[in-house]
Amino acid sequence: MTRVAVVTAGLGQPSSSRLLADRLSDATDRALRLQGERAEVTVVELRDFAHEITDHLLTGFAPPRLAEAIEAVTSADAVIAVSPVFSASYSGLFKSFFDVLDDGVLDAKPVLLGATGGTARHSLALEFALRPLFAYLRASVTPTAVFAASEDFGTAGAGTSLSTRADRAGRELADLVLQRPRTAPTDPFDNPTPFEQLLGS
């Protein structure tokens, strides 16, 4: 079983970011099933956690509901992260969520990036804003990132290109997940140094 956490920062209900996130998670699920693997998908709608994220930034403590969302991302085998493009970059809510994650949470974790905007002119935000952010977080990002403009959802047949890109990105994420060695999390208290040894040194 592969655990996939889907993080989407759309503000509306439904939002184009959530629509894109659903397409990407469906494509990933299909790609995993074709390789004999089942996916368990958890969706984190950041809109529902806006106040808790702000509280966490101010206090350093995550309220219980937000802590569950953070744990879903921390324990996931892969992450799909989708943000609307505001002022030529990811949204503040999107960035704030990744700011409250502990250091190292995304180390080498397979991540698929997506973004939405009114026109295709905003698509470069994936490369000059989102990809550098996740490189800094040391994630393993798929070569294909997917941008969806309003017209990709609008008319019959307009989503063909989007579906093609989503399928390619989903296959890339599935490949990264299945190539990554699975290691159980280590507990630093599993093998403590004996007290006598500490006294002896």
Rank of each mutant, 00 (worst) to 15 (best):
A120F: 06
A21E: 07
P194K: 08
A184F: 07
S150E: 14
I80D: 01
E71N: 14
A108V: 11
F86S: 09
F61L: 14
G114C: 03
A120H: 13
L46N: 00
L112H: 01
A5G: 13
R171I: 09
P64I: 04
A115S: 14
P84H: 11
F49A: 05
L46D: 03
L113Q: 05
A148H: 05
S87G: 04
F86R: 13
L137A: 07
L58I: 10
R23E: 04
D175M: 07
P63L: 08
E172W: 08
S89P: 00
P14Y: 07
L198F: 09
T2R: 02
P132R: 08
V82Y: 03
A156C: 00
A158P: 04
L137Y: 07
A88G: 10
D103Q: 15
S89I: 00
V105D: 11
G159S: 14
T119Q: 04
D103V: 12
A88M: 14
R168L: 12
T59Q: 05
R131V: 04
I70E: 15
A169P: 07
V44C: 02
G157V: 05
S91L: 01
L178D: 10
G118I: 09
T160R: 14
M1H: 10
V4G: 06
L66P: 09
L24C: 10
Q197G: 02
V73R: 04
D175P: 02
S83G: 07
F61T: 15
L24K: 06
